[in-house]
Structures are given as C-alpha cells and as structure tokens.
Design a protein around this nucleic acid. Sequence first.
DNA 1: CCTGGGATTTTCT
DNA 2: GAAAATCCCAGGA
Length: 188
Amino acid sequence: MPKFKRLPAKFYHQNTFKIAEELLGKFIIRKIGKRALIGKIVESEAYYGPNDLASHASRGKTARTKIMFDQAGTAYIYLIYGMYYCFNIVTEAKDFPAAILIRAAEPINLSKKANGPGKFCRAFKIDKNLNGENLITSKKLYLVENPNEKIKKSQIKKAKRIGVDYAGKYKNKLWRFYLKNNQFVSKK
DNA sequence: CCTGGGATTTTCT
DNA sequence: GAAAATCCCAGGA
C-alpha cells in the first residue's frame, strides 16, 4: 500500500472552481471497518453562490441545503429522485453557499463502477449518515493526494453541467470538469 | 442511433 | 401535488 497524504484544510479554502479542477486525479477513501474503498476522481461539477439557479441554495437556506452554507471541507449528501445519493464537497467561507458535486471516479479497488453521481455513491456506500462529515478530520471519508500521478491542465476538459436545463442562463456555464480520455467519465 | 418512462422519496409550493 | 444536480431498460427508426 502506498502512503497517502491527506488533503489539508488549506486545499478546501481555495476558489471553488480551482478546487473543482484540482480534485481531478485525487483519491477518495471511504473506510468501512477495516476495509478501505479507493477511487480516483475523474469528474466534478461546481455549484456556486446564491444566484446559481442550478444550485439547491438558490432558493435560500433550508433544512436540506444548510450544509452548503457551512465551512469548506464539509460533505453535503442528498437524495435525488427518491433513490440515488449525491456526494458534494462544500467550499468557500461559512454562509456562502457553494459545493462541488463528485460525478465520477475511476475504481482503484472498487467492485462497482462509479461513472455517475448516483453510481458513485452506491459504489462507495455513501448515504445520509455521512452528511455533514468533516473531510479534513473524518476517519470514514476523506481525500488524499494521488501518489502516482500529477494531472496537467491540458488533461482537463471543461463542459456544461448535466441535468440542469431549468437553470436559465446558468445552464450553459462551463462548470463541469473532467479528465480527457478517461473512460469512467459519465458523459463526454 | 434515438426517445420516453418508471422506480422511489425528499423537498418545497 | 409536482419536481428533482439519476439511472436503467424498453421500443422505434
């Protein structure tokens, strides 16, 4: 097993879009008892600020979305379409709503595919119990440096977000990022 | 190749 | 009561 270096608090206190790009290639680790599930992040989507109509936070702070207003480095997990969980990483200062949806990961030691936000959570056994988890201190769910690979800017593709056609002018924002030529990206 | 609908439940109107 | 930051499968062209 290689030695994994956890991403520090400082990493989560950068600009949301920079983090969304830098997350690509990083490893996510989910510990369940003595087992660890590991995947490489290959696709992310940014949801930024109170005016982004695609963001849950655009309608203000509610019981569900209050986590998005929390401090950077918090996990925001919600149930979509009644059956799939989505995993997000909260960014920006407290009381500024922003988060990054992790859409896909390349399996390192996973038995299931993770090429889509719902499937990602299924593969990692992520559910509402982990909502609000602190990724900087958690023992169950956290992110680490990729010890084998450095991602270059030229490997990153920017694209429109998925499933947000209702979001007016925000639907065309290039706020989705993924690794070029990676077969585990949910949609090219 | 494409389009459309069902599953299932939380959330807001 | 309708819609939702999804996924999978069926059916038609």
